[in-house]
Nucleic acid binder design. Structure first.
Lengths: 230, 230
DNA sequence: ATCCTGTTCAAACGTTCGTTTGAATCATAC
DNA sequence: GTATGATTCAAACGAACGTTTGAACAGGAT
């Protein structure tokens, strides 16, 4: 063979990744067996270990494939705003829109499995599995750092710790929004699924409202004291 | 034996429930084996099946034990506010504080395992396991209905669908806030764990900011149109 | 002392898991 | 054609899983 990959009909590797992605979302990592994956992908049981080495390595590859693209798009959106701003601090709404807009865009892509992946990702932030968490942390490190710095510049009067927390809250709201309607139906059985494109403005309003909310009294007080001391 | 329960040293049932709760949080349901549970609880392997019937039934009991108390407290807090209000609609902040305040209070109780449970619960809203979701839905139905109705009364001008979404977002933010610092460290390695009692005011500011945020333009427009038609 | 009932215990059950193996199959290079 | 290296395949591996079993043990009532 010439090099790296290739052969057989509709590429075995991709078939496995797609089947795994979808099954992981439906059943979770542990509850998804190799036999379920290879069955749905219509490949031989041994194919996973041949192409990826192990089940754990397959899980990593499922995330790597998508996260690379997702985080590249997020950084791209941020940099586009930054070059528009010409060195001035960005508006918080632009920063939030860059990060979460890209996420929701992938979540809306039902054609190429983006929606499936984002729901899987939302679940995985709280995943107990140690090495999955470790891997996510590494993949996210740079992007989060960049966005946090943009927010620090945009909100110089808000304590950094407070911004960090609120970013955390925003991630939670988004994850639920995407992981989704399932959980919503959990609250209201009569809930209509309706047009998912309306999610973006809804979520954005909520996130910005939360981000710009008045600081809790404790924080205001402690800052006032610190200012007095200075 | 007289009736229901009892015998042996430090109650076998409770030992199993505590061990299971803690292990489920650390490893997830599927990755936690009966042998791990009975090992940590220092009881015989067969004790789980004897006392609970099956692993699935044990999972249910772990949740039932805590959720019954949690939802009773939530309803209690809501009713206390309602009786204070004397029939007038409650302020949204009071409603939100009743629901999420009780949650955070349990999350702050590290003495009796409340913290462990709340982190487990946060993870479980997005749990793939079908019957766990089904069970959660049943346990939550009444409480959520009551709180939603209170919010409908408190915010008569906001479309009910919008309130439902925002409640959903709030649940997400809270879950992340509790499930927690783990995920936060995922974003910022240098993050200090610090005083968890400060979480409550932080989260409450964010939630209320989000809940009271201006409606997205789409919604405002569609309401204006509807009003014109009327 | 005897029986009864609730509980514990060690051992085993059958099933399913992730992984490994070695032969079969295929496309290309010579 | 024949050799070569990549891929597929059916079958098996040992380990771990949730559950069941039947005997052992406990305390209270008769």
């Amino acid at each position: 063979m010439s090099e790296a990959t290739a052969k057989q009909g509709p590429d075995t590797r991709a078939r496995i990744l797609n089947a795994a992605e979808s099954l992981f979302m439906t059943h979770g990592f542990e509850a998804t067996s190799m036999r379920m994956i290879t069955g749905q992908a219509e490949v031989n049981l041994a194919a996973v270990n041949y192409h990826f080495g192990s089940k754990d390595a397959l899980i990593q590859e499922v995330f790597r494939r998508r996260l690379t693209e997702l985080n590249r798009d997020r950084l791209g959106a941020l940099e586009a705003e930054e070059s528009l701003a010409n060195g001035a601090p960005l508006k918080p709404s632009k920063i939030v829109a860059a990060f979460f807009g890209v996420s929701l865009k992938m979540a809306a892509d039902t054609e190429h499995g983006g929606a499936t992946f984002m729901r899987l990702l939302g679940r995985t932030y709280t995943e107990p599995n140690e090495f999955v968490r470790q891997f996510l942390a590494e993949e996210y490190a740079e992007v989060v750092q960049r966005f946090m710095n943009a927010l620090y510049r945009a909100l110089p009067d808000v304590p950094r710790e407070e911004i960090l927390w609120r970013f955390h809250f925003m991630m939670g709201a988004m994850s639920y929004a995407i992981a989704g309607t399932d959980a919503l139906k959990l609250f209201a059985g009569d809930f209509d699924d309706e047009d998912p494109t309306r999610l973006m403005p809804r979520l954005m309003s909520f996130l910005l409202g939360g981000l710009r909310a008045p600081l809790p009294e404790e924080v205001i007080e402690s800052r006032a004291i610190r200012r007095d001391a200075a």
